[in-house]
Amino acid sequence: MRIHGRIGDWPVDLTVELDGAEWAQLRGLPVAAVDEAYPVAAPATAPSASAGDRLWALAQELLRRAGALDGPQLFAELSALAGGEEAGKRLLVRLRHCPQVEVQAAGDAPVYRWTGAAADQ
């Protein structure tokens, strides 16, 4: 997770890396559930094809379990899952075009809904 901005006159650029147990503490979930859903990803390395497939499956599962998430919340979850904002954006775009996902305009941000209407990609 990357945090950047300002605190008063001070610029802030901070990268925070959390393992499965730390995510569990933040979310209040059992450690085993978080370890399965949020594997530790190394953002500095390019993911292999199988790692990309695994991330894609996890991204779909995240939305399927939630049922619906607004765009900013989903982006934050995907960025954490993928280990960075760039990879999170790729997953968000891929979900936007996924036949199992319906994107609805709702207020300030779109809402992504899992419909499961088509066979898994």
Results as ranks from 00 to 15, higher is better:
residue 1 M to Y: 14
residue 1 M to V: 10
residue 3 I to K: 03
residue 4 H to P: 04
residue 5 G to K: 04
residue 6 R to L: 14
residue 6 R to H: 14
residue 6 R to S: 13
residue 8 G to D: 12
residue 9 D to Y: 04
residue 9 D to Q: 10
residue 12 V to Y: 00
residue 16 V to G: 05
residue 16 V to N: 02
residue 18 L to N: 10
residue 19 D to N: 15
residue 21 A to G: 12
residue 21 A to Y: 02
residue 22 E to G: 08
residue 25 Q to M: 12
residue 26 L to M: 13
residue 26 L to A: 07
residue 28 G to W: 02
residue 29 L to T: 09
residue 30 P to L: 04
residue 30 P to S: 08
residue 31 V to E: 15
residue 33 A to L: 15
residue 34 V to A: 13
residue 34 V to M: 14
residue 36 E to K: 03
residue 37 A to K: 00
residue 38 Y to M: 07
residue 38 Y to I: 13
residue 38 Y to L: 14
residue 38 Y to A: 00
residue 38 Y to S: 01
residue 38 Y to R: 04
residue 39 P to C: 04
residue 39 P to W: 01
residue 40 V to I: 07
residue 41 A to H: 04
residue 43 P to G: 10
residue 44 A to M: 01
residue 45 T to K: 15
residue 46 A to N: 06
residue 47 P to A: 11
residue 47 P to Q: 12
residue 48 S to W: 03
residue 48 S to P: 04
residue 49 A to R: 15
residue 49 A to Y: 10
residue 49 A to N: 14
residue 50 S to T: 15
residue 50 S to R: 13
residue 50 S to A: 15
residue 51 A to H: 09
residue 51 A to D: 14
residue 53 D to V: 07
residue 54 R to N: 11
residue 55 L to F: 09
residue 56 W to F: 10
residue 57 A to S: 12
residue 57 A to D: 11
residue 58 L to I: 00
residue 59 A to W: 02
residue 59 A to I: 03
residue 60 Q to R: 12
residue 60 Q to E: 08
residue 63 L to T: 01
residue 64 R to M: 09
residue 66 A to K: 07
residue 66 A to H: 07
residue 67 G to I: 06
residue 69 L to F: 03
residue 70 D to W: 06
residue 71 G to H: 11
residue 71 G to I: 00
residue 72 P to F: 05
residue 72 P to C: 01
residue 73 Q to C: 05
residue 73 Q to A: 15
residue 74 L to M: 04
residue 75 F to C: 01
residue 76 A to T: 12
residue 77 E to D: 12
residue 77 E to W: 08
residue 77 E to Y: 03
residue 78 L to P: 14
residue 80 A to C: 07
residue 80 A to K: 04
residue 81 L to Y: 05
residue 82 A to C: 10
residue 83 G to H: 03
residue 83 G to Y: 05
residue 84 G to L: 09
residue 88 G to K: 01
residue 88 G to N: 03
residue 89 K to A: 09
residue 90 R to W: 06
residue 90 R to P: 00
residue 91 L to T: 02
residue 91 L to E: 10
residue 92 L to P: 07
residue 93 V to G: 02
residue 94 R to C: 02
residue 95 L to Q: 02
residue 95 L to R: 05
residue 96 R to H: 13
residue 99 P to F: 11
residue 100 Q to M: 11
residue 100 Q to W: 06
residue 101 V to E: 07
residue 101 V to R: 03
residue 101 V to A: 07
residue 101 V to T: 02
residue 102 E to L: 13
residue 102 E to C: 05
residue 103 V to M: 08
residue 103 V to H: 08
residue 103 V to E: 08
residue 104 Q to N: 08
residue 106 A to S: 15
residue 107 G to M: 06
residue 107 G to C: 06
residue 107 G to Q: 09
residue 107 G to D: 10
residue 109 A to Q: 08
residue 109 A to I: 00
residue 110 P to C: 05
residue 112 Y to Q: 06
residue 113 R to P: 03
residue 113 R to S: 15
residue 114 W to Y: 05
residue 114 W to S: 01
residue 115 T to C: 06
residue 116 G to N: 06
residue 117 A to H: 05
residue 118 A to K: 13
residue 119 A to E: 14
residue 119 A to P: 09
residue 120 D to V: 14
residue 120 D to S: 14
residue 121 Q to S: 12
